[in-house]
Design a protein around this nucleic acid. Structure first.
Lengths: 141, 141
DNA sequence: GCCAAGATGAGACTCAGTGTCAAATTGGTC
DNA sequence: GACCAATTTGACACTGAGTCTCATCTTGGC
């Protein structure tokens, strides 16, 4: 089960396991969709009104570093976050309901390999996310 | 020559061809690297001090819509822009010198096709940019 | 040249995200 | 369990990219 490994990841790099970071991680994981830091903060406020806004931002940043979440850009220059259980995951983001599907890494690998081969470029990281309408949102239109 | 088509693109959707938008387009095209709106504004100031900041932002937005430029996110939540001469171009961005290489579209197409097939997802647009060090920056390290 | 629709420039405004700092918490160590 | 240094937190001030407003100016069709 993936959840069992979460505390390990959260304490990587000498990071301490705090109540607040657990709250943020759980809130993001249970959302099952992309949320901005502000939206997540507001959700957390409902049950944990003492958790500060800056703490949510810091916790999200830590989660991204620890490979527990990924960040991408939503329209309007806002970052959105989604919980994920492996590193280097890429996503299909529904721009209507904000639900996120994982993209099969095996489909991505050939592209990454070909880029390394064809361009003398040391790829550090890739923004590789697709935006559009998921099946159920497409039907509703 | 591609440049000849620029006025056509700039007047799409009933948009008017203004002196300022030409200045912005030329400044971005001649930069040959990714620039933030602010950086571009500052460059333009040198030769055209009357062009306003908001105008540069608006012109860049229009260029992205018209497929004359693409936008991606730089660290620090800032948009950067690069001129491009075809639609749906994806890029290799050097995070050190900000130079940009075009990514061969034929390498990308299989991925796009497989996403459409494997996920019932109507892809609207894709963030598909690679960040890293270009050859010359890599050598300098 | 005329004129309506659209664009511009100046600057106020917004708000996501960051920095600061005193107080609180964590997790080794004894 | 108590102690303590290092880290984290919460509150809030601050920053700055990007947007909005509005009076004025341009564009382009007639």
């Amino acid at each position: 089960m993936v959840a069992a490994r979460i505390p390990d990841r959260m304490t990587s790099q000498g990071r301490r396991l705090t109540r607040q970071r657990v709250i943020v991680a759980e809130a993001l994981a249970s959302a099952k969709r992309a949320l901005s830091a502000q939206e997540l903060y507001e959700r957390i406020q409902a049950n944990h009104p003492t958790v500060g806004r800056a703490t949510v931002y810091r916790a999200l940043e830590a989660q991204v570093q620890d490979g527990m979440a990924s960040r991408f850009e939503r329209d309007g220059h806002v970052s959105a976050y989604i919980a994920c259980d492996a590193e280097h995951h890429h996503h299909l983001v529904c721009t209507h309901c904000q639900r996120v599907e994982d993209l099969d890494e095996t489909a991505v690998a050939p592209l990454l390999a070909s880029v390394g081969r064809r361009h003398e470029f040391q790829v550090d990281h890739a923004a590789l996310d697709f935006y559009g309408l998921c099946r159920s949102c497409r039907r509703k239109r």
